[in-house]
Design a protein around this nucleic acid. Structure first.
Lengths: 135, 135
DNA sequence: CTAGATGCTGGAGCCGGCTCCAGGTCAACA
DNA sequence: TGTTGACCTGGAGCCGGCTCCAGCATCTAG
């Protein structure tokens, strides 16, 4: 079990951010000591860390919420599915599919800009090398 | 020559955003008609479009500013460089290098999350396929 | 038993990046 | 000549995502 400070340390979020996420309902409430002090399980910390990773890919909090929510159930559903279940699954599939294509677009854009940046960088490094050679 | 409306259309920024970027000194002032109406050259539009691409990779406006500024001169510098020039080149090299490694980190994170997302997506699609089969 | 660190809550504030608005100018067309 | 419609400016407002603060409780070490 970890205090909020430790959880912050481990996950890369700030203490305030952890409380903020909890407040807006993004993350589930951790357990509390009788005195009201938050206590994060190993598992909580894992979930938060993967959230942190998601965040670094530029997902908005709304998107993360959606991403998190599709973790529930359906591990071993009975067929045929109830209409409700089918809808839930279809909605999650759609959300994830949209996510994915946005990420793919971003991935390509990133590759592109990285390429350009490498070129420019090479150009400047080259100048510096020439300068050194010409010393 | 393009009006601001056309430039917005072509580059993917909004009209307001173009004016905003100009105001904060991110982009250079386009020409103006005698009446004060902005008039963007082919070249301006190209620069703006590549800015838009940069933006999509998550660069902040500050970073973009830095990225843009290293376009100047040094195409054919005289060696040895003046101290000033060397410093400029070194600084740009540093800025770009930092950019690049941030982008690389993000690239990896993105690949990672995309992989996870594909897995989940497959899982749900599989459920739907099974459902269809069990109809 | 007291000081210092850590935690709690609610709410205000801040920053980046737009976005919208009022009030006005200009150009062109019917 | 009057009415659109695109443009202008300066400034206010907004939203996402934190970040900070006051004022208080709790825990731990010395």
């Amino acid at each position: 079990m970890y205090s909020i400070g430790q959880a912050a340390e481990l996950t890369g979020f700030s203490i305030d951010t952890l409380r903020y996420y909890e407040k807006i309902g993004l993350t589930k409430q951790p357990e509390r000591s009788p005195a009201g002090v938050r206590s994060y399980s190993e598992d909580d910390v894992k979930r938060l860390s993967s959230l942190h990773c998601l965040k670094r890919t530029g997902l908005s909090l709304e998107e993360m919420k959606a991403f998190l929510q599709e973790g529930r159930c359906f591990a071993n559903p009975a067929f045929p599915l109830s209409g409700e279940d089918r809808e839930a699954i279809e909605s999650r599939t759609r959300i994830l599919g949209e996510h994915l294509s946005r990420m793919e677009a971003q991935y390509r854009a990133l590759a592109d800009v990285m390429g350009q940046t490498r070129e420019k960088l090479d150009f400047y490094r080259d100048l510096l090398a020439k300068e050194a050679a010409a010393k």
